[in-house]
């Protein structure tokens, strides 16, 4: 009998925090294996230039891959120089 093997896409959950103080939002988002910060940004409609991603307390780039249990915070590039 012919068996069809399909790759299992691992799914994990990442805690996402957007903004600070009065405008803070928190949520949990499902991510697949290999998904990056920029993929989450696309899902949430966040523009790369407008947010600095902080992964588990460290500033990272949008190219960083995510793992189950990560905490991903987005600090909005605040105006005012």
């Amino acid at each position: 009998m012919l068996k069809i093997y399909r790759p299992v896409l691992q799914v994990g959950t990442v805690k996402v925090i957007i903004g600070k103080e009065g405008e803070r939002r928190e949520m949990e988002i499902e991510v697949r294996k290999g998904e990056k910060v920029e993929d989450v940004m696309k899902k949430l409609g966040l523009i790369i230039d407008e947010f600095v991603p902080i992964l588990n307390g460290e500033v990272v780039t949008e190219l960083e891959e995510l793992r189950e249990g990560d905490t991903l915070e987005f600090v909005r590039v605040w105006s005012g120089g």
Partner: peptide, 14 residues
């Protein structure tokens, strides 16, 4: 992990 050319973790994508 995304690395800088020196091998350290990248903080900015230029």
């Amino acid at each position: 992990m995304v690395r800088c050319f020196c091998g350290e973790r990248a903080v900015f994508n230029l």
